[in-house]
Design a protein around this nucleic acid. Structure first.
Length: 445
RNA sequence: GACCCCGUCGUCCAGCGGUCCAGGACACAGGCCUUUCAAGCCUGUAACACGGGUUCGACUCCCGUCGGGGUCGCCA
């Protein structure tokens, strides 16, 4: 408990560079920073590292900000753009130059000179909050570029200056930054500053154990949003990649995540990203969501489709019927196609399985008659009427339901048939039955 | 190549020297339920990389081997 007094001072940051879309690795880093800050009453800062004028793209910075918001990782300060802080870096570099700790390089082709810190080779040891003590042998260390020839700040320098200026207490970042840490420690020393604590996170790999990249499909946060994933599911899944609360708990709410999270329980070995498990978890979250919530998440995905004009209330009834069967919101259009008013396309497999039997046409004719007159037109009323018909003809439920399902949905599978009849409405069902009858007549001849 | 990190079921995690012939989850297989599919429930297959130590006793500690990964830019 001795550390709790300091907890209020905790300040962490997520510092992506806008040279590409935010991918799951970066998102996981952001999430762990956020969990750490939120669990300890700390401050979470967003910093955009756009010092590279050539590779940074403003739109990507905007995208990162937008996607982070969608994920629900809210920050307390920022976004701070490094590109607007060149003077700050310059002043500190000039100081080091004046103190004789740094020197200028030979002019490059354009006449510009870089400012470079002199480094005395020495072994460097630091205590990583996740990996424990790490020692890097001194002969690995070379002089460190502070300012590039074009006057902009080099990564390690800008990073150290900002982390210090922003009062960062814990640097939580990917394991690929471990080799940068000794260099940054040297910079802190040269500048006479106290370094923050460091915590490195294991990497996330693709199924072939190579680092996640475009080859492994779309792994950007945006792709997951557009792919119908829920932010809560993504947070939960990503939190479990490289960390666990101990024991067998897997489904945790965000507040439980915040409560339970600790750097001490972060795993040291890199993890393979398992899309299947994410999908399963997304299904779990979908099932826990109300139709109202699902529709809200669904509508943006539907905007440019034939569903774009379907009224929200209508959407809500359909979602409450089959929303809980989805693993991803994106499956919706594929599963709910028969609720759109257009020609039903009969699945050939369904036709050969359920429409080739002898009495199918006869049964559906009677079903049609029954549905035309059934009162009240409710789920109960429909079921009573059709069950009555089955009894009267001495057939099993499936003998009537399967052919009927194909007629009104075109598919082999669907949610409960009576609910669908109700939602489709009498007129639609009748006209679909009529078309089905004609079709059956044709193929059975 | 040099430096650093890592090594439990196919995958993600649990395990913190004995209670482990190793537990949970995803995936997979079979079953139940059921108008179908999904869900749900039940059952099953499947792992401590290898070799030395240390110890009365190692998945757990140490060393080595092998394997995987990271970094070696005036990129971040």
């Amino acid at each position: 408990m001795g550390t709790t007094t300091r907890d209020n001072h905790i300040r962490v940051r997520f510092a992506p560079s806008p040279t590409g879309s935010l991918h799951v690795g970066g998102v996981r880093t952001a999430l762990f920073n956020w969990l750490f800050a939120r669990g300890r009453g700390g401050v979470f800062i967003l910093r955009i590292e756009d010092t590279d004028r050539k590779r940074s793209q403003e739109e990507l910075g905007d995208e990162i900000i937008e996607e982070l918001r969608w994920l629900g990782l809210d920050w307390d300060e920022g976004p701070i753009f490094q590109s607007r802080r060149f003077n700050l870096y310059r002043n500190h570099a000039l100081n080091l130059l004046r103190e004789g700790k740094a020197y200028r390089s030979e002019p490059d082709g354009a006449g510009g000179t870089a400012v470079i810190l002199k480094v005395m080779p020495a072994d460097i040891t630091f205590r990583d909050l996740v990996y424990g003590p790490i020692t890097v042998s001194g002969n690995e260390l070379k002089d460190i570029v502070l300012l590039k020839s074009d006057g902009s700040a080099a990564y390690n320098f800008a990073c150290v200056v900002d982390d210090h200026e922003m009062g960062i207490t814990h640097v939580i970042r990917g394991e690929d930054h471990i080799p940068n840490t000794p260099k940054q420690l040297i910079l802190y020393q040269a500048l006479g500053w106290t370094p923050p604590s460091f915590a490195h996170l294991p990497l996330i790999l693709g199924e072939d154990k190579s680092p996640l990249s475009k080859r492994h499909g779309s792994t950007s946060l945006r792709a997951f949003r557009e792919g119908g994933f829920l932010p809560g599911a993504l947070r939960n899944y990503l939190a479990l990649l490289g960390w666990s609360p101990g024991g067998d708990r897997e489904l945790l709410t965000s507040s439980e995540l915040v409560e339970q999270f600790s750097l001490k329980k972060v795993i040291r070995r890199s993890a393979v990203f398992d899309y299947q498990k994410l999908l399963w978890m997304n299904g779990q979250y979908i099932r826990k969501s109300s139709p109202e919530e699902l529709v809200t998440r669904l509508q943006p995905l539907l905007a440019d489709t034939e569903w774009g004009t379907v009224p929200r209330e209508r959407l809500k009834s359909i979602v409450s019927l089959l929303g809980h069967r989805l693993k991803s919101l994106k499956d919706f259009t594929a599963q709910a196609g028969y609720f759109i008013d257009r020609e039903i396309i009969y699945d050939p497999a369904a036709v050969s399985k359920y429409w080739t039997g002898e009495g199918v046409g006869g049964i559906l004719t009677e079903v049609k008659k029954e549905i035309a007159s059934v009162e009240p037109f409710t789920e109960k009323g429909l079921e009573k009427a059709l069950r009555g018909l089955m009894a009267q003809r001495g057939i099993k439920g499936g003998d009537l339901i399967h052919p009927l399902r194909v007629a009104i949905t075109g598919q082999k599978d669907s949610p409960g048939i009576f609910e669908i009849l109700l939602l489709l409405g009498r007129e639609r069902v009748l006209s679909r039955l009529e078309k089905a009858l004609a079709y059956i007549d044709r193929i059975q001849k």
